[in-house]
Amino acid sequence: MIGWSQEFPRQQLAFQGQGSGFSLLLKRNCSISPSGLMWVYGSIAVVTMGIAAGFAALGAWVILPFAGIEILALGIAFTLNGRHAGDYEHIELGEGSVKVEVRESDFVRYHEFNTAWASVRVAGKGHSMRVFLAESGRSLEIGRHLPTQGRLDLAGELTRRLRK
């Protein structure tokens, strides 16, 4: 079935902006908000700990530590997953510079590269391929929220526009 690659809906990287510049906001796909996740966590924790506390009252206190460990594990898992829910990369190509705004958990960092000096580097192959924006002496990984194909597309497009 050759037709699949066409029918397969692809995420379209929309490079918006004027002239040769563009502005690109790359986010992880998260289908639940952090507060929604907290609600789910709360409901599971209340039910599970409630059951364990009930049995503890009947003398079977051993259930309590198991429930505690489990709810802790669930909490860690949700935290790990949820704290990066708001992560994004905002890449803006303007006159003479590439501005990259990176949010990672609670931190937002701004990076600026000079279009005259910056270049795009690709490291690794296949699914472990990574894309870097580099200037003399420093480099920044970009496109981490994109799938392999998207990263390649980004690298290609950025390279093309930087060379213009």
């Binding site: 059951i51 079977a60 259930i63 309590l64 198991f66 489990e70």
Partner: peptide, 9 residues
């Protein structure tokens, strides 16, 4: 998730 700690206990 709700019932496994009970078995473990």
């Amino acid at each position: 998730i709700a019932s496994m700690p009970v078995l473990a206990g």
